[in-house]
Simulated scan of single mutants.
Amino acid sequence: MHIITHSLGTVILWDILFSDKFEANDPAFKIRDILNKSSVDLPDRKIHLKSITTMGSPISLFNIMLEVKPQQVNFLAQQYTSQKLNWLNLIHGSDIIAYPIHPVLDSQDLSSLFLTEEYLQENVNPLEATLEQLSELLNRKSAYPQEITNILSYAQVAAGSLNAHTYYWKSDRVAYLIVNHILEQHNEQVLNQTLCIQQAIQRLKQVPGFTEDQMKLSETLSLDKNISKINFKDQSGYLVFSKNFLGIHNVYIFDHQDRACLAGYVGLIHVPGLKQEVEFIQRELGV
């Protein structure tokens, strides 16, 4: 079984699978028993929970009330599958209802879940596309104050929020990600095939809005304010995430001999996606 949910449906799924606030006779326990790999009542069950996909999810917001703990998720996920439960959470950058789930699952003991969160930055209507083009035009002309481009970036998010929460159903990119997730062509397979430094470079290049800096100024310029430094667990190198004096977020990757392998940056509108990717790299590839 592959479960795909959207919006409030993601919260209902979260509640059914992981909440501990039900009465003993609640139907949620019947669903859990069907999914339980060691069910006493269903020893010959043919349903196996293989993956979960959530879109536009406000789980992090509703969990303030549901109070599901990471330990509870970890324990119950182990009942549903013999391997890690693969979870893909899709978040459009302009969807004001969608939130990352990993803050709720911030636990060192979460061994039964493999969570991947993908940010989507596709324009969802003509107004958002027009504002993006105008913002990029002004960014190329240094005569305009940064405040103006910042306002345009926020206006772009506001324009996109009108349609972003339902855009998942129309996006070819979403369909592609879900199909690959169901077919298990996801990042967990890649993690065992290449060096951490190569994986990190590949992932960063796929971040929406990421622009490579071929001059690799990081080798000579050290005025950036470091946000974080991540040493890769296989000792192949490290990542530096920083913000320069103009407020632009940069990311650099160095090999184990301190040679710059990648340097790049994103604009304001794409900062959440870059931060999300850096956090993923830190969780999965860092020490």
Rank of each mutant, 00 (worst) to 15 (best):
T116L: 12
I31G: 03
A77D: 08
L183V: 06
K216A: 08
L223W: 12
I47T: 11
N187S: 12
K205W: 05
I151M: 10
Q72D: 15
T149M: 01
A77G: 04
T211I: 15
D26W: 06
T10A: 13
F241I: 02
M65Y: 14
F241H: 15
G264D: 06
V174P: 02
I3P: 02
N192W: 03
G209D: 10
P27T: 08
T5F: 06
R283G: 02
Q214H: 12
I16L: 14
L76E: 11
Y167P: 00
V190C: 03
S94I: 07
E118Y: 13
T149G: 01
D234A: 06
Q121N: 12
L115M: 11
L115C: 04
L204C: 03
P43L: 12
S236D: 11
G273D: 09
P272D: 13
Q72W: 09
Y252Q: 13
E23H: 08
I96C: 05
L42Y: 15
S112H: 09
S135N: 15
E284G: 00
N192R: 10
Y176T: 05
L262D: 03
H270L: 02
I227K: 15
I47H: 08
H256N: 15
S142G: 00
N139Y: 13
H92L: 08
S19M: 04
I47Y: 12
I31C: 09
F241A: 11
Q193V: 10
I281F: 07
F254A: 00
L138R: 06
F241M: 04
D172S: 11
D255G: 00
A24C: 03
H165P: 00
P43N: 10
E279H: 08
L262N: 01
H48C: 06
N125D: 13
F75H: 13
V190E: 12
I4M: 10
Y80S: 01
F75A: 11
S51P: 06
C196V: 02
Q199S: 09
I4G: 03
T10E: 07
H6R: 02
T211G: 02
P58F: 07
S236V: 06
S60V: 02
S161P: 02
Q199W: 10
R259Y: 08
N150G: 07
F245P: 00
S236E: 12
T53M: 09
N123Y: 11
A98V: 04
L239H: 00
N192I: 14
